[in-house]
Simulated assay, not measured.
Amino acid sequence: MTAIDERPQPPTTPRATMGGDTQGFWERLALGLFIAVPFLAFLAAIPVAWGGWLGWSDVVITFVMYGLTLHGITVGFHRLFTHKSFKPNRAVKITLAILGSMAIEGPVIRWVADHRKHHKFSDKDGDPHSPWRYGNSLRGLTKGFVWAHVGWLFDPEQTSIDKYAPDLAKDRDLVRISRLFWLWVLTSIFLPPLLGALLTWSWQGALTAFFWGTVVRIGLIHHVTWSINSICHTLGERPFASRDFSGNVWWLAIPSGGESWHNLHHADPTSARHGVKRFQLDTSARIIWVLEKLGWVRDVRWPTAERIRAKSVTPAA
């Protein structure tokens, strides 16, 4: 079998801040800071809260910002832009692209290219972030788990946008939003302290909102997203037939917006709902359902009972 050349090809469209095909020093430095600083905030979170630096406004701001940016990723970047699970109107498309960008996981077109490549080579050679990259020994899995969680983010060779996301590179709205990624990063960073100052009318309110609503929230959403790559491709139940090690991890369902029902997703990637069994909470699917009822999205690819049975390892009773 002829090997597929996965080396980045020369781009045919201007990249600017869309996320280039190679990763530079300053990109890696910024990425390192966005990983390290929120991690340190996690370590400080309990003593900070114990010391009285957590108020009702901080809780509200953090939960709202987390919910908006999380579903910008799950509904927007993932189910819409990567897998085309539904068709939105222009306002919904732009809103989801901006909210997903505010999760600070990279420009939308770059994110989609990486994820499409992941699905093409899932848990095989070519997968950007498989925890099985170094084999199935304890040492190999430990190394692979770290790679799948954060290590792959520093790979200087990036996924080719022209090969994996040419459709998005032709969408003027998404190209513009990708190139303005810096603006959405600044908005995501400074909106919580601004809201904190307005709600409490104090500098302390702004500072605590920055700590919880910006730093802790960004760290939490990053590690939850990365856990889908690492934990959900190592652990979990596998009731559906897929070509990889994707599993369902129930305790990640709420913080991930339903993304941790990962086995069905890899068995049926275009499905708009991942949690298809009883009591499998999937807030991302519920949001899509609401948008459909409002007439703002159409052609939603809901899973049918027949399709679920066909994908099951053992037929449902």
Rank of each mutant, 00 (worst) to 15 (best):
A3Q: 14
I4T: 14
E6A: 14
R15E: 12
M18Q: 14
G19K: 07
D21A: 09
F25Q: 02
E27G: 08
E27C: 02
L33P: 03
L33D: 12
L43H: 02
A44V: 05
W53P: 05
W56I: 12
V59T: 01
T62W: 01
T62H: 00
F63T: 14
L70D: 04
G76E: 07
H83S: 05
S85C: 07
F86W: 12
N89W: 11
V92W: 03
A97Y: 08
I98S: 09
A103D: 01
I104V: 15
G106S: 14
V108C: 10
A113R: 01
A113D: 02
H115C: 00
H119K: 00
K120N: 05
D123F: 01
D123M: 00
W132T: 10
S137C: 08
S137N: 09
G140S: 05
T142Y: 15
T142W: 14
W152Y: 00
W152D: 02
L153P: 02
P156V: 06
P156K: 08
P156N: 11
E157T: 09
E157L: 15
Q158S: 13
T159A: 11
T159G: 08
D162L: 08
K163V: 15
Y164H: 10
A169C: 05
L180E: 13
I189T: 13
F190I: 08
P192K: 10
P192E: 11
P193K: 13
P193A: 12
A206R: 01
L207R: 02
R217N: 14
R217V: 13
I218K: 11
G219T: 09
I221Y: 06
H223M: 15
V224N: 04
S227Q: 07
S230V: 06
I231Q: 06
C232E: 04
C232N: 12
H233V: 00
L235R: 12
P239M: 06
F245K: 04
S246V: 03
G247M: 02
V249L: 00
G258T: 00
E259C: 04
S260Q: 05
W261E: 00
S271N: 05
V276S: 00
I287F: 14
I287M: 15
I288M: 15
S312T: 09
T314P: 03
